[in-house]
Computed example of a mutant assay.
Amino acid sequence: MLFKTLNIDTEKEDRIINAATKVFAENGYKRASTNAIVKEAGISKGILFHYFKSKKELYLSLYEHLSDMFAEKIYDRLDMEERDIFEIIRQVSVIKFELFSTYPDLINFLNSVFHESDPDVKDEIDKIRGTLTGSSFSKLFSNIDAGKFREGIDVEKAIQVIYWTFEGFANQQQAKASSMSVADINKEDILAELDSYTELLKKSFYK
């Protein structure tokens, strides 16, 4: 990850991250201007391009950096001793809601990346997302209590189906959230819908 390898002082790095997050979130990749980013950050264009070779490199580095930061904040609050897959998924969902309120600019940026279709960055976004998703899957579900599943169930496949279900649900909610403010998101309604899927899947897979 480029941000971790660069020798930028913390204050300057924060200004670049905050400015780029805001400008990319508001404009998308193609329409975002490096002139607007350096103006927002209060730095020269020469300084920005000293650290990043191009707008594309800045954008992808920012996406990877903020995704990692978001994941770390989830893991910091998550009960890593929990072994029930449905409890883990619900915990993650509740933590995400808390982070949405605390870091609205970060969420707006990640939402904008989720919907980004510019061919100049789309393939790289998908590669980064795939790597991050694989890492998260491994970290969250490596110690699931297999004893809760019914006899004859292929536990690995069941976990994959459960993960795909809630990943699709999360993507659906993310798409809805892109057209509204954080304040308009009804946490209780979304959690109630999540719980309804949980009950359905428990009946299918649990004893």
Rank of each mutant, 00 (worst) to 15 (best):
P104M: 09
S93C: 07
F109W: 12
S101I: 05
D79V: 04
E81Q: 13
V113D: 03
G130S: 09
I107L: 13
D126V: 14
R129M: 05
V94G: 00
D126P: 00
T133R: 09
D84C: 10
E124M: 14
E116H: 06
N108D: 13
N111T: 13
M80V: 10
V121G: 05
I107M: 15
N111M: 15
L106V: 10
Y103N: 03
D105G: 01
T131M: 08
F109T: 12
I89S: 01
E98I: 01
D105N: 14
S101C: 01
S117R: 15
E116G: 05
P119G: 07
G134S: 01
G130C: 04
P104E: 12
Q91D: 10
Q91H: 08
I88W: 03
R90P: 00
Q91S: 11
E82G: 01
P104W: 08
D126F: 11
P104G: 09
D126A: 15
V121A: 06
L99A: 02
I95P: 06
S117H: 11
V92H: 02
G130W: 01
L78N: 02
L78T: 02
G130T: 06
I125S: 08
V113H: 09
F86C: 07
R83P: 00
D118F: 08
L110V: 10
E87R: 10
D105Y: 11
E81G: 09
K96S: 07
N111K: 13
D84F: 04
Y103L: 02
I85T: 03
K127Y: 05
